[in-house]
Nucleic acid binder design. Structure first.
Lengths: 152, 152
DNA sequence: CCTGCTTCATTGAACCTTCAACCAACCTAG
DNA sequence: CTAGGTTGGTTGAAGGTTCAATGAAGCAGG
């Protein structure tokens, strides 16, 4: 309850409405394409992408959850679904008995290949085709600083 | 399947990871405060705020759904909950028999007053304390242009 | 005026996420 | 070595969102 301005000024409000608009609508826009092309939602897609970029297609559940911006519980449920579909597999970590490792399977890579081209095209359509190089850098820097605050 | 670069370049990827990070994590961060201070989720809060800013605290369901960046179906479910709690009321539109109007009640305003100070403080903490005036304007402009593409 | 199309809104079922409880493995101070 | 705390992960239940179906009301052409 420190002495702060009671609400946002006009410039801040304009920015906030645009930002929250993107935040609320972007996931839905992405999921339409992912569902259509590969029957995945955005979180499932990011799990598969996360594993694809990892050494040996393998990552600890905790690290994967953080990378995908989701809770461990959420990942655990999603991993069960993905495992039942054969897109990933899980096994105990040899180094730490508490940890579980998740690995991308060959069918998982295939599914990713189904989704990726359309996904990239959409991301370009919605974001990068609108921004020049300098604006892209600018947006990245600002988002990164805001993200750092959210994560802290 | 037009001839496009197969994936994002490094600058684009950096920007995308930061942006999607904000998109995935911001709602959760906001909801912690709203749930604690007023037992609302972010969508419910934005519904109440939308009505508060409207003439006579009243708005058509469709317009409200668009303003809140949600589907009409989602709003319909949420409106039922809010109405059961007495925070809003719904009634037929006199001008158009298809439309329903939603109005903010006095208890709704009270609930909003419970949530708002903490919400503003949090929005400042996460976003505007990190940005100077020029960056705020910059972010607003970029987000607005991206949002326009998502909405189209 | 009546037929078919579109808009506005609600509903139930399926699905997904969150929350809290739980358990096992690790770590560390005494 | 062991009791207590921390970390990593899973689970079931509760709650929220999406999707498709439904229906009422408006509108436009013949």
């Amino acid at each position: 309850m420190r002495d702060e301005a009671p609400w946002l000024d006009e410039a801040e409000m304009t920015t906030w409405l645009a930002l929250i608009g993107v935040v609320m609508r972007l996931p839905g826009a992405l999921e339409v394409q992912l569902r259509r092309d590969a029957d995945l939602n955005h979180f499932e897609y990011s799990v598969l992408v996360g594993l694809e970029h990892a050494e040996g297609g393998t990552m600890r559940m905790s690290d994967l959850a953080f990378l995908c911006n989701g809770s461990l519980s959420r990942l655990s449920h999603v991993a069960r679904r993905l495992e039942n579909e054969g897109l990933i597999e899980r096994f105990a970590c040899p180094d730490d008995g508490r940890s579980t490792l998740a690995r991308l399977t060959a069918p998982g890579r295939e599914r990713l290949a189904q989704a990726a081209p359309g996904h990239v095209r959409l991301v370009r359509d919605l974001v990068f085709d609108e921004l020049d190089d300098d604006e892209t850098r600018q947006m990245g820097e600002l988002a990164k600083r805001i993200l750092a605050r959210i994560q802290s």
